[in-house]
Design a binder for these strands. Sequence first.
DNA 1: TAGATTGTTAATCGATTAACAATC
DNA 2: TAGATTGTTAATCGATTAACAATC
Lengths: 207, 207
Amino acid sequence: MEKKIPKPVVKRLGLYYRCLNRLYEEGIEFVASKDIAERLGIKSSQVRKDLSYFGEFGKRGVGYNTYELMNSLEKIIGVNKIWNVVVIGAGNIGSALVSYEGLKKEKFNIIGIFDADRSKVGKKIGKLQIKHISEIEEFFKKNIVEIAVIAVPENAAQLVVEKLEELGVKGLINFAPIKLRTKLPVEDVDITLSFKALSFKIERSLK
Amino acid sequence: MEKKIPKPVVKRLGLYYRCLNRLYEEGIEFVASKDIAERLGIKSSQVRKDLSYFGEFGKRGVGYNTYELMNSLEKIIGVNKIWNVVVIGAGNIGSALVSYEGLKKEKFNIIGIFDADRSKVGKKIGKLQIKHISEIEEFFKKNIVEIAVIAVPENAAQLVVEKLEELGVKGLINFAPIKLRTKLPVEDVDITLSFKALSFKIERSLK
DNA sequence: TAGATTGTTAATCGATTAACAATC
DNA sequence: TAGATTGTTAATCGATTAACAATC
């Protein structure tokens, strides 16, 4: 239990969770590591090994109870509760995130969006009104915010991060194309990198 | 040159390219692997090893010519030319992509967006008008399309993929939360997975 | 019981890193 | 020349996989 979890395992946890959700929706009561592996295009021993970092969830000869494993994964990942999220930057990416239903469905609840551009302030995106970045301290006094999304231009990102650290945010999703200097956990997202990787693969016809 | 490129290297190529662009903008003429590594938070020997898969780009005792390495990377990745892209699905994600400037800047040029919902057809996103999915064959006859973005609901994704394969697309960016069955190169993008990985890290305070 | 599938070990495979001769 | 930094090898580290005893 106190073992270090390999990075690739962390990435796969979300995939397992998603898969278990599907299986549950499909009304499948028990599932073997082999079935999960097949759906995900990986090896069954990898599924079992990955899960073994967190406990014993299966029954030999039977497999895993879909509902129970789904719930266990939910707790392991931490999506058994609602996370409060703010978005910094109301540009294309920030705005799109706010109206993205997928996030709320997964219990990531965007409760505020901020921008430095006063001409954007007051405008509504769905039910949320864009606030000026100077209002952020006030906002953090009134709300518990665990996660912040950095969706500001590259040159503003580091400053924003330092502010958010001060305010007590617990983790960051970073859309700015730079490496953030911070002690907080960060997940970097860069869609152009995916396009570039695809470009490379097409060129080499490597899959 | 005919060696197999490790997957992690493919992911880092885009980071190197981005870094070289910055260095070039900053007017830095020569750069050492140590400098690149520092900016990216990796080891200098990794930078050199990664580059060595594609040739010899540096001068011992001196480093790399920023401009030349940038250009070499451009060719290696395949972003030395414009890629034509269509987006399938004009929902939240598809629409956001079309108005996203970052893609065009990186030479990924979205030339069409399609949806199955007739009530959306004809609406404009930026300069692009949403077309009905039934018009896609016609569109492919008139245009060269290399990349397609799958931004349709999960249950429609596989069918769309088969259609696109038929039409001769060369690669896919997949936003649908399923594993696509295809022989084409695919890059999967799932933002909720990034949020889940962050959730896990916060819970374990593991970075 | 016989068949199935787990959890875990050990072997294999692959990626990262340190180290250094080559050389600018 | 002396100092710096490459490209590459070999050692290390980490992740995946096969295999199998345990057991439902």
